[in-house]
Design a binder for these strands. Structure first.
Length: 720
DNA sequence: AGCACGCCGACT
DNA sequence: GTCGGCGTGCTC
């Protein structure tokens, strides 16, 4: 323990234990405490203090996320800090211009991490001393540093930015709390639901024997996957190694947490999600770091969790956009876990009901093995899948009233006879609905009564349900020819459906009001994609997918993949077809994602997507970077960037202004400004060179203040 | 990004 | 001879 880490800090003193004393006296006591305690804890300049005899230089990663400072700085180690200033600890150092020998200490104090202790420095000037060791906990381990470095390089970002994502802020109280003794590895669990997969047992055996299998897992529909994921984690633990699972949201993480607790009891894993407060979060992080617990289940920040001797990393539903971190440099959990599996020699499990093109590429290239159920197993586990064709108009009275095609209405009505029914509707504002500009009557399809949508600018008018082009629309109420955009969200849909089925309870689940579960009894459950509650018992009697045209009409490279992903995740909550489960999609049946849904063939869909993208030279068969910013910034950056000779520059094109209301993400234009975007594409093995070139160019322009800055994003998700 | 240094003109 | 404008470059 150093002086700086001494435990008698002023904030620990029980000040309230002197109730009889007046305020002046309290102030005096406080001052006395401060005088005694603070100089010991306060950072010092260490003028004329002796330096450490052995390895008197500390290489420090300074936590200032300036891209052109993406390197370490050497500091002298005062003898008094010698013992504590070990590699990995948090330190405070003076950093910045103005700190000169013989002058006032002007440089500001910044946080950093000791990366390495050295005998000497290649810096020719006189080294400033470390000001303070904040904590003797060596949080930035060599393993974590290597991972962060690789992630920063891949994302064209700064190391300090990635370390900030990887290590939670220090909470002194959490650090002081004692850590439990490491539990011995658990018993090898039974394979459970994995027997439903032809290669499931072999996958578990490989984990149990300490090998590093890599698999893309097509999970069977139904409620079994959290237990299966938990079994894979527990099997890895039984082999004496650690395991990590990243899930797209807190609800999914809670389900796996619950399954793991059911399997192993408490004490073998921790749950790491955003809603557990900074102190609890750091405490759990520390139990992993200190080796007391070897398994973590969590949302994307858990991808960096310091699990010891990692044997397996698992990622659920890798196509979910939540797996992309919103903070610079916006790494994707899939990329981080792939890097981590390679660096730390761990197995990999990419699971989900859907299949991303990236996952398909791993399988096609032989790097991962498919872990899929037999066709017959799938047939019984999945609901009966139907689509509503264009000519299926609402003929009977009830269907007209519900403004639904007959087939969809019957599925709802029949489903409600035996259990809950799920209706998936587009997110509010996702697909603006249209109404008469004069009388505000919603614009309806003359055939099936579905809402009209106009997808993209200048796109033709279509029915949002049956897809029929309705360019000749006139308002049925007042005859008006002009339209205006309105928003019909889950609540409005719920109201309309509720009127069509009087007496049936209606529950909604959406962005600000997400239900975890619904009971196994008749109810209409209206939900936006990703917020679908899990139905207790055997699952939903019927699932109705209403957002087909809105999803598929988006001018986005991933529109098809994303639509199928949302449908499969919702349809997976339905009962199997032998238990009467039905899922109905209102979408054009000839479209590829719709056909893949009906056949429940996510792997086939992803392979065909992959082939298409390969033909077009799109990710993941190439690596891409998006450069955005004011036109002169984008042009300026590209003019100084020494791109690989194979680079293919697409654009610039004006960037669409992000919808109002949604918080602006980095790299998006502020309101009222017109930004450009350029896409740069290279072959897969030159992605590193592309990232490095753009990072160098950005640093160059920042240091030389050559105009406004441009944003660089590697592997952008939202390319048209 | 800050922040100091430096080289220039206007002032006591 | 000194003060302070902001353009340039560095930060261990």
């Amino acid at each position: 323990m150093s002086e700086a880490g001494a435990s008698s800090r002023p904030e620990d003193r029980p000040e309230k234990s002197h109730p009889e004393e007046g305020p002046e006296q309290l102030a005096l006591i406080r001052a006395a405490v401060r005088e005694r305690a603070l100089p010991r804890a306060r950072p010092r300049t260490w003028r004329n203090a002796p330096l450490a005899e052995r390895l008197p230089v500390a290489r420090v990663l300074v936590d200032k996320g300036l891209i052109h400072l993406d390197r370490c700085f050497d500091y002298a180690v005062p003898a008094a800090l010698d013992a504590d200033a070990r590699p990995g600890v948090r330190v405070r150092v003076r950093f910045g211009a103005g700190q000169r020998e013989g002058r006032r200490e002007g440089g500001g104090l910044v946080n950093g991490y000791v990366v390495e202790r050295r005998a000497d420095s290649d810096f020719t000037g006189v080294l400033a001393p470390l000001a303070q060791v904040l904590s003797p906990e060596p949080v930035l381990t060599p393993e974590l540093l290597a991972l962060c470095r690789a992630v920063a390089d891949r994302c064209a970002g700064a190391l300090a930015d990635v370390v900030r994502l990887a290590i939670p802020p220090r909470m002194a109280r959490a650090e002081r709390a004692s850590t439990p003794e490491p539990a011995p590895p658990p018993e090898l669990p039974e394979p459970g639901g994995w027997t439903r997969y032809p290669h499931g047992a072999a996958f578990l055996t490989a984990l149990a024997e300490g090998r590093v299998p890599r698999a893309v897992w097509s999970a069977l529909p139904g409620p079994g996957w959290p237990a299966e994921l938990a079994t894979a984690l527990a099997t890895t633990l039984a082999s004496g190694r650690g395991a990590l699972a990243v899930l797209p949201d807190g609800r999914a993480a809670a389900r796996v947490d619950e399954a793991l607790t059911a399997l192993l009891g408490a004490g073998h894993h921790v749950l790491l999600t955003a809603d557990s407060g900074p102190e609890a979060r750091y405490r759990r992080w520390l139990t992993l770091h200190r080796g007391a617990v070897r398994c973590v289940v969590g949302t994307r920040a858990a991808m960096f969790a310091p699990v010891r001797s990692l044997g397996l990393v698992a990622l659920w539903d890798d196509g979910d956009p939540a797996h992309r971190d919103v903070h610079a440099p916006q790494p994707h959990a899939r990329d981080v876990l792939l890097l981590r599996a390679a660096q730390q020699d761990a197995g990999l499990l990419l699971g989900g009901h859907a299949h991303s093109a990236e996952a398909a590429r791993l399988v096609r290239g032989g790097w991962a093995r498919p872990l899929a159920p037999a066709r017959e197993t799938l047939r019984t586990a999945a609901p009966l899948l139907r689509t509503v064709a264009e000519e299926d108009e609402a003929r009977d009275e009830g269907a007209r009233f519900a403004r639904l095609p007959t087939l969809a209405w019957r599925a709802l009505r029949d489903g409600l006879a035996s259990g809950p029914v799920l209706v998936q509707v587009p997110r509010r504002g996702y697909a603006p609905r249209l109404a008469c500009a004069r009388c505000r009557e919603p614009a309806r399809c003359a055939g099936c009564r579905g809402p009209l949508v106009s997808v993209g600018e200048g796109e033709e008018l279509r029915c949002g349900w049956c897809g029929t082009a309705r360019a000749d629309w006139h308002c049925e109420e007042c005859g008006g020819p002009r339209l205006r955009a309105v928003v019909i969200g889950a609540r409005r849909t719920a109201e309309e459906l509720g009127r069509a089925f009087p007496g049936v309870p209606v529950r909604t689940s959406g962005r600000d009001h997400v239900l975890a579960t619904v009971p196994d009894e008749p109810a209409l459950v209206v939900s936006t994609p990703g917020a679908e509650p899990v139905a207790e018992g055997p699952g939903y009697a019927a699932v109705l997918l209403l957002d087909g045209w809105a999803l598929l009409g988006r001018p986005d490279l991933r529109a098809g993949e994303e639509a199928l992903r949302r449908w499969l995740n919702a349809a997976a909550l339905a009962r199997g077809r032998e238990a009467g489960g039905v899922a109905v999609a209102l979408a054009e049946p000839t479209l590829r994602p719709v056909q893949s849904l009906v056949r429940w063939d996510p792997a086939g869909h992803a392979l065909r997507e992959l082939a298409d993208r390969e033909a077009l030279g799109f990710p993941p068969v190439s690596r891409m970077a998006a450069v955005t910013g004011p036109p002169e910034a984008v042009a300026g950056l590209l003019s100084v960037a020494e791109l690989p000779s194979t680079a293919d520059v697409l654009g610039p094109v004006p960037l669409p202004v992000p919808p109002a209301g949604r918080p602006r993400r980095t790299g998006e234009p502020p309101a009222g400004e017109q930004w450009d975007r350029v896409l740069v594409r290279v072959p897969p093995d030159e992605g590193g060179a592309l990232a490095a070139a753009l990072k160098t160019a950005r640093a160059h322009r920042l240091t030389h203040r050559e105009g406004p800055p441009a944003w660089v994003r590697m592997d952008p998700d939202d390319i048209g």
